[in-house]
């Protein structure tokens, strides 16, 4: 792993949005100084609550948003402010698997059209026959069999799980090397959620793409991610190997998140960290450590000085003045 050049390097990335007008104008710092690296065949689980900036970060690395500052380097090329014309040939290699395929699939298009269109647009196939062949093969691979039958169906005739399989087929037909999956299983019933995760895991072994898996569900992240990065109000507060982050979290926020996950059986062995209140308005993040107004371990320093992400254990980073050791 160490020898391989990273597929994606994100350096001190900021994505700010100006919202409102006139007097009510404010700036939301959705992503506020994030750095990470991703290699091929590796999956980072990006976890956090709503408003943490995880979706914005995912879209910014795919250049679906243009970053405010910092760098996004894809395969050694700086794409941070690359114009759309030059981005086009790279787009094929970086794909998004959205949360709700119902809104991303055109309701008037058949599954076959939805799958063959990108192949034609990106000039990957020479003709319609070849496109159809590839699409059928991919339908089979994502478990929609017999593929000929699904090829002519429209999205509203599919179940949620089947639609998500089509969305995955569509993304992987282009053989991307970077995939951002944004809550791909959150809208699905539990009994089928596992089969979609299985499919993504199988594709990870087959295509060795680098993947950013965005989720609020830590139990799901545990299954699919090699590393976990926890976001809170636009910043990564903890980042490390999955097992270590989930069993020996260093940040009070990670601990509180983990403790709050309902368990079918048994109890958590993590120490009690009860956070007060809810995530504050992202346009007015607290000074110092952004968690300090909610954190039971907060000391005076926490409201003054912003903690930096430091490597406290091998490959395990945390941004906290009083980490749980």
């Amino acid at each position: 792993m160490e020898l391989e050049e990273p597929l994606l390097v994100v350096e001190d990335l900021h994505v700010h949005f100006k919202v409102g007008a006139f007097g009510a104008r404010k700036v939301i710092r959705a992503v506020d100084g994030v750095s990470l690296q991703l290699c091929r065949g590796e999956t980072i689980g990006l976890v956090g609550e709503s408003g943490s900036g995880k979706t914005t970060l995912g879209r910014a690395v795919l250049r679906l948003y243009e970053p405010t500052s910092g760098k996004v380097i894809f395969e050694g090329v700086d794409i941070t402010h690359m114009p759309e014309r030059k981005l086009r040939p790279l787009r094929r290699k970086m794909q998004l698997v959205p949360q709700d395929p119902f809104t991303s699939l055109n309701p008037l298009q058949t599954v076959g059209d939805a799958l063959t269109e990108p192949l034609v647009v990106h000039g990957i196939v020479r003709n319609g026959v070849e496109a159809r062949e590839r699409a059928l093969k991919m339908l089979e691979r994502v478990g929609l069999v017999p593929p000929e039958e699904f090829y002519n169906v429209k999205p509203h005739n599919l179940s949620g799980g089947q639609r998500q399989r089509v969305a995955i087929a569509r993304a992987f037909l282009l053989e991307p090397i970077l995939v951002v999956a944004d809550e791909p299983t959150s809208n699905l019933d539990v009994s089928i959620r596992a089969s979609i995760l299985e499919l993504l895991k199988e594709f990870k072994e087959r295509y060795r793409q680098g993947m950013i898996f965005i989720t609020h569900d830590l139990a799901v992240a545990r299954l699919i991610a090699d590393e976990i990065a926890v976001m809170y109000l636009g910043k990564i507060v903890e980042h490390g190997p999955t097992k270590r982050v989930l069993t020996k979290p260093l940040h009070p926020y990670t601990t509180a998140l983990l403790r709050a996950v309902p368990r079918v059986k048994g109890k958590t062995s993590l120490s009690e960290v009860e956070l007060k209140g809810e995530v504050p308005d992202p346009s007015k993040p607290p000074k110092g450590c952004r968690l300090h107004p909610r954190c039971p371990l907060a000391k005076p320093k926490c409201s003054e000085v912003e903690p930096q992400l430091v490597e406290l254990d091998k490959d395990h980073y945390v941004a906290c003045h009083n980490p749980l050791l």
Partner: peptide, 9 residues
């Protein structure tokens, strides 16, 4: 249903 739920532990 019980065995389809991922367990955080």
């Amino acid at each position: 249903l019980l065995s389809s739920v991922p367990d955080i532990e």
